[in-house]
Design a protein around this nucleic acid. Structure first.
Length: 453
RNA sequence: GUGCCUCUAGCUCAAUGGCAGAGCGCUGGUCUGUGGAACCAGUGGUUGCGGGUUCGAAUCCCGUGAGGCACCCCA
């Protein structure tokens, strides 16, 4: 310890901007959400992988567009290598597939849950280190792979009691065709995407103004606006788009992709109220090439819960050959934020299920033996470790931590061969023969599972 | 990365440029085989940090850190 650290310990050091500590209770909620997502992902046959947080900068460079690149953590390591913290889980997946393609069975379905880094200015639901929960299928052009992602998202979000999310669908090539049709110059297409992406937020007039301000011709802007505002039943909208963009091969391809996607969603039995076509949805990342989608929640206003899309060209950037792929990321912190704000999940405040109290120094043996028995039986049990051991203190400890059951085994119990069981929530207390403790506890904890009302 | 707002006890918040406070919490006790309540007592601070102006700064000014809002972008 330095003298400075010894002298001035009153002010704890801050964590870096946009980065956070998590207390046990917060971790329990995060873990619960991750668990539920994993369950859904695995139900569809996706398998876990992991990759390093740090990659060669060159692996990450040139994949996210100019804006994204600016937000990447990029530096030299001790060996002078140019390195970067991963910006998402998709580009590392592309590198992973390129590196391991002979060890993988295609189509390759994987999920990946872990932290990514973006040097953005933090705000609510926006951090510099945050977790993404990714599901991707590599090695197939089938729209079923895209449809599975939509279906998984709906189930995953429903599994954390967020059942009313609507997933917006669009297609990158449809946007492209639309811009071409309107006569927007190639170098202006990005400007147009950016403008129309704000349709919900700033309205048609706002979008028009933004396009005009960036030098888009009045007529082109109007054409774009007309198309982008088409609403309604997806099949009908697509028929209308097809009619307006007739003869454009890109539009044809995009429309037939989306029709196929919709057909699979129908076959999967996905509730049609849970998704909608939104021709104004652009999505920023450069690497998308096909269908794109996004999960947005209105209240609380926290923006996008996840983004997804097909990126048939990305893996090819690491290999000669092109390998098609599609998938999406759910943003863990935003989902946690919504779940917390709307109190959608109730997780226990502690992992301990039982507190074994200690009568006095002569009774450590029984207490520890009891605890070990319970542990062997799969019950999370802790022994009171405080130095002042009056019962009041021990019960108070269990109460404050939210441990639902306390056990007593003092002289009285020992003499009679019983254990006293106290249920903290109701205050109900009774004695059971020592031999029946395990079944009693199992029954108790089954009635009162981890989740509290 | 740009602009604006905020930061006072563990938490929520008071204090006109003039003695830094309250509620909750926490600790101890009433109460050594039993939590939540009540009552009593106690504990609380480099006013984010550094500098400046001033007789005097939580308050005004500059810088800096963190949080938030809007842009940008996005999970």
């Amino acid at each position: 310890m330095t003298s400075e650290a010894r002298a001035g310990t009153s002010r704890p050091p801050q964590v870096l901007r946009g980065m956070r500590d998590f207390l046990p209770q917060q971790m329990l909620l995060r873990q619960e959400i991750i668990d539920r997502f994993q369950t859904v992902f695995e139900r569809y046959g996706f398998e876990p992988i992991d990759t390093p947080l740090l990659e060669y900068y060159e692996v990450l460079a040139g994949k996210y567009g100019e804006e994204g690149e600016k937000l990447m953590y990029h530096f030299q390591d001790h060996g002078g290598r140019e390195v970067g913290l991963r910006y998402d889980l998709t580009v590392p997946l592309a590198r992973f597939v390129a590196a391991h393609r002979h060890e993988l069975t295609f189509p390759f379905k994987r999920y990946h849950i872990g932290p990514v880094f973006r040097a953005e200015r933090p705000q609510r639901g926006r951090y510099r280190q945050f977790w993404q929960c990714d599901v991707d299928t590599v090695g197939t052009r089938s729209m079923l792979a895209d449809a599975e992602v939509v279906s998984i998202w709906i189930e995953a979000l429903a599994s954390v009691n967020l059942p009313n999310v609507v997933i917006q669908l669009n297609h990158r090539q449809l946007l492209q065709a639309l811009a071409t049709h309107a006569g927007v110059a190639t170098e202006q297409t990005l400007t147009v995407y950016r403008a129309i992406d704000k349709l919900e937020k700033i309205g048609p007039e706002g979008v028009r103004e933004e396009m005009l301000r960036h030098g888009i011709a009045e007529a082109a802007a109007q054409t774009v606006l007309d198309l982008v505002q088409l609403r309604g039943e997806p099949g009908t909208v697509l028929a209308e788009v097809r009619a307006r963009l007739t003869g454009d091969p890109q539009a044809e391809a995009a429309v037939s992709d989306l029709l196929e996607l919709l057909r699979y969603l129908d076959l999967l039995g996905v509730d049609p109220r849970r998704y909608t076509l939104n021709l104004a949805l652009a999505r920023g990342l450069d690497y998308y090439t096909g269908p794109v989608f996004e999960a947005v929640v209105e209240e609380p206003a926290i923006g996008s819960l996840g983004g997804a899309g097909r990126y048939d060209g990305l893996i090819g950037m690491f290999l000669g050959e092109e390998i098609p792929a599609t998938g999406g990321s759910l943003g863990l912190e935003r989902i946690v934020e919504v779940v917390q704000e709307l109190q959608l999940l109730h997780v226990p405040t502690t992992v301990s299920q039982v507190l074994v109290t200690v009568f006095d120094d002569q009774h450590w043996g029984v207490a520890l033996q009891l605890a070990q028995q319970l542990r062997a039986d799969g019950i999370n049990a802790e022994v009171y470790l405080g130095e002042r051991r009056d019962f009041r203190r021990q019960i108070q400890y269990a109460d404050r931590k939210g441990i639902p059951v306390a056990l007593f085994c003092g002289p009285e119990e020992l003499a009679r061969g019983v254990i006293t069981v106290r249920e903290l929530i109701t205050g109900v207390q009774y004695q059971v023969p020592a031999a029946e403790l395990a079944p009693t506890m199992r029954r108790l904890l089954a009635e009162r599972p981890q989740r509290q009302p």
